[in-house]
Design a protein around this nucleic acid. Structure first.
Length: 426
RNA sequence: GUGGGUGUAGCUCAGUGGUAGAGCACUGGAUUGUGGCUCCGGUUGUCGCGGGUUCGAUCCCCGUCACUCACCCCA
């Protein structure tokens, strides 16, 4: 075969799409119940949007963006959803139309990484964004919403890790404290961490290198550097989670890879589905400075993104049943034309119907009906056409009846309305 | 960017220095027009690609590409 899918991209075939749709529908309804509305923004954005939001020193911006140039424009395929949504919010002055906006999105994201299980170059995220509400209450609500969403999918083995990285002031103070702590130990750090010491020392906290872990083990906690406002916000978030009974783990080392976070940050991880170290299903936090830094008004925001591939992996192989179908097996051209009409009649009445016009043997057609898990099969041969009749076969019950052609659709409707006989299909 | 593993039929895989097999799937028949079980038959392969060793390579060697897993990073 000459062509294959581009490295790190995947074809999602119909049986698999059914599993995706189940997750997406669950997400949509969870979001809708909490007053979130879907937003759709372009996949293509200006590169600078991500440089200024996701962060110049973030791995994503440094080396993972698919870049395209067109004339003087430098565009990229979006590597994550938050900046585009924020940009759309500002571009359309949504803050002038309503004080608080609750948005969600589902879509493809792109990062030029080395693919592996749970990590792809084209992957899909669902995410939600809440603009205009600075209160810690909505941080807690958010976390609970996400936890509940996973629970409703059956993903119960999760860890909700939360932390606060403070606002700009607290973070600057902590950055100083951490740098003071690490400087004397700089020689023992990994090469990567040595660089980070200058441009983004907080990121050293979640390094997995044993040398870095050792250096960081007795480092001061960021939670001790929070100023009064940040501390009060953090305490209120935890009170909210406690009130909701949402399980959580405070993780002072959790700092997240993106620059725009302030105060609350979180990750929801699951060990289900053999995800290995790509086990973060949902990640997010508060970004009260993002809109301002993109040139907009100082509107606070909270948001998150979740990797749909990872959620599907955590879910494991759970096939989703195909819809019940009425299969039509005609023999000969006259019967095929009659079947064609019948298929349309059935569809007009809301019954999924599939006509087999291949001209194969009855055995072959019935095997195909089986393969489709058809509820009933209508057999039409020369005799039936002559007599204006059809054979209606209940595939689960192993029964067959003759019906007048004019009554066929109504009769099929009746059969579809009754549950199939249990345990009789063998 | 770094390391490991794997590339044989549509799928899952076996296999041997003398140019290839099974199961599944598909299909015809047993049942002159009736499925899931059974039985019989049939279709499908540049054995990833290039080079080397050899009388001869799918098998051994080198290279390369792809896929995959892991590190890194992240959803």
């Amino acid at each position: 075969m000459q062509f294959r899918a581009v490295k790190g991209t995947n074809d999602i075939l119909p049986d698999e799409v059914r599993r995706w749709q189940r997750v997406e529908q669950t997400f949509r309804s969870a979001m809708a119940l909490a007053g979130f509305s879907e937003v759709r923004t372009p996949i293509l954005e200006h590169k600078n949007l991500f440089v200024r939001s996701t962060g110049e020193t973030s791995e994503i911006v440094e080396k993972q963006m698919f870049e395209l140039t067109r004339g003087d424009d430098v565009l990229v395929l979006r590597p994550e959803g938050t900046p585009g949504a924020a940009r759309a919010y500002l571009t359309n002055s949504v803050q002038a139309q309503e004080p608080v906006s609750r948005w969600y999105y589902i879509g493809a994201m792109f990062r030029a990484e080395q693919p592996q299980r749970g990590r792809y170059r084209q992957f899909h995220q669902a995410g939600c964004e809440l603009y205009g509400d600075p209160s810690p209450t909505c941080d807690a609500e958010f976390l609970d919403l996400l936890h509940g969403f996973l629970k409703s999918l059956g993903i119960i083995d999760v860890t909700v890790a939360v932390n606060s990285i403070g606002g700009l002031e607290s973070r600057a103070a902590y950055r100083q404290a951490l740098t003071d702590h690490l400087r004397p130990r700089a020689e023992t750090l990994s090469d990567h961490a040595k660089r980070r010491l200058e441009d983004n020392p907080l990121r050293i906290l979640d390094s997995k290198d044993p040398r870095d872990r050792a250096a960081v083990a007795d480092a001061p906690s960021i939670l001790d550097s929070l100023n009064d406002e940040d501390r009060a916000h953090w305490a209120a978030v935890l009170r909210g989670l406690d009130a909701l009974g949402t399980p959580y783990t405070v993780s002072p080392g959790l700092v997240r890879g993106l620059d725009y976070y302030t105060r609350t940050v979180f990750e929801i991880q699951s060990s289900m589905g053999g995800l290995g170290s790509q086990n973060t299903l949902i990640a997010g936090g508060r970004y009260d400075n993002l809109l301002k830094s993109l040139g907009g008004p100082p509107i606070p925001a909270v948001g998150c993104g979740m990797g749909l591939e990872r959620i599907l992996l955590a879910l494991g192989e759970t096939p989703v049943a195909r819809p019940a179908v009425c299969f039509i097996a005609p023999l000969g051209e006259r019967a095929t034309l009659s079947g064609l009409l019948l298929a349309r009649e059935l569809r007009e009445r809301g019954v999924v119907s599939v006509l087999d016009a291949r001209g194969n043997s009855m055995k072959s057609m019935l095997r195909r009906a089986d393969g489709l898990d058809a509820r009933v099969c209508i057999v039409i041969g020369e005799t039936e056409v002559d007599q204006c009749q059809v054979q209606i076969k209940d595939l689960a019950a192993h029964t067959q009846e003759q019906a007048a052609r004019v009554d066929a659709a109504a009769r099929v409707l009746e059969i579809f309305a009754t549950p199939p006989a249990l345990g009789s299909n063998h």
